[in-house]
Computed example of a mutant assay.
Amino acid sequence: MAICCCLFSLGVYTSYKPYLNKDEEIVKQLQKGVQQKRPTEAQSVILRRYFLELTESFIIPLERYVASLMPLQKCISPWKSPPQLRHFSQDDFMKTLEKAGPQLTSGLKGDWIGLYRHFLKSPNFDGWFRSRQKEMTQKLEALHLEALCNENLVFWSQKHTEVETVDLVLKLKNKLLQADREHLPVKTDTLKKLQAHIRDIILTLPDDLQDILLKTGTT
């Protein structure tokens, strides 16, 4: 017991050097709360809000840069596979921090650049970026579906061979299955429109092919 008291009186020390400076304002605010006997719950709310705002200031530049990796909607062609996301470049991201860094939303000083470099090497960044990649890839797939729905697919089928038309129907059916399986952010009206396109295309084919395609997958 005496040893524990001695340790607490001496304090706890670490060789870790923080990247950001101590925020004297939040410390004063919490100390004032102690002096005024502010409820612990209220102190916790203040501290949680502070760290939430600090985290948002840190993440917003990353979110903004990652969003810029998304191809423009005009680059999405219904007759080509959805375009790929552009590569995440640490150097390019770092260049954005000069004008669009956390200083726009946070007055806290320190080595923000060093903090970002440390974060980009961590498993936390890998997990966060994988999640954002998945979201944006699903968005591209959804936009590709919308592009297909806006085409006159029946007219297209009339200008192509029977084999090409059957191949298109199978691909469209796979798109519908993918949308359901991966929970793509696609509007219900878009899915219904694509189902209607599939039925209309099938009805242009010979009866034997119609029977087979109507039984294949879901229209």
Rank of each mutant, 00 (worst) to 15 (best):
S89V: 09
S89D: 12
Q90M: 09
D92K: 14
F93G: 05
M94A: 11
K95Q: 14
K95G: 04
K95F: 05
T96C: 04
T96E: 12
T96Y: 01
L97A: 06
L97P: 02
L97Q: 03
L97E: 02
L97M: 04
K99S: 13
K99D: 15
K99M: 05
K99R: 12
A100E: 14
A100D: 15
G101N: 03
G101D: 04
P102Y: 01
P102S: 07
P102M: 09
Q103M: 10
Q103S: 13
Q103Y: 04
Q103N: 06
T105R: 11
L108Y: 00
K109Y: 03
G110Q: 08
G110S: 07
G110A: 09
D111I: 08
W112G: 06
I113A: 14
G114I: 06
G114M: 06
G114Y: 08
G114E: 11
L115F: 12
Y116I: 08
H118M: 09
H118W: 13
F119Y: 15
S122E: 09
N124I: 08
N124V: 10
N124T: 10
G127Q: 13
W128H: 03
W128Y: 15
W128C: 09
W128I: 10
F129R: 06
R130V: 03
S131W: 03
K134I: 06
K134T: 11
K134F: 07
E135P: 05
M136A: 10
T137E: 13
T137F: 01
Q138K: 15
Q138N: 15
K139R: 13
L140C: 10
L140Y: 09
A142D: 09
A142R: 04
L145T: 04
L145E: 08
E146D: 07
A147V: 04
C149A: 15
N150V: 02
N150R: 14
E151Y: 02
E151G: 05
L153D: 03
V154L: 12
F155W: 06
W156C: 08
W156T: 08
S157P: 09
S157V: 01
S157T: 15
S157K: 02
S157Y: 04
Q158S: 10
Q158N: 12
Q158W: 00
Q158K: 14
H160P: 07
T161A: 11
V163H: 05
T165M: 02
D167W: 00
D167V: 04
L168D: 01
L170Y: 06
K171V: 00
K171Q: 12
L172N: 00
L172I: 02
K173Y: 00
N174W: 11
K175I: 00
K175R: 13
K175W: 01
K175Y: 06
L177T: 07
D180L: 07
D180Y: 00
K187P: 03
K187Y: 10
T188S: 10
D189C: 03
D189N: 11
T190D: 11
K193L: 11
Q195F: 01
Q195P: 00
A196Q: 13
H197G: 06
H197A: 12
H197K: 13
I198R: 01
I198V: 15
I198M: 02
D200T: 10
D200G: 05
I201R: 03
L203W: 06
L203A: 12
T204S: 06
L205E: 00
P206H: 03
D207M: 04
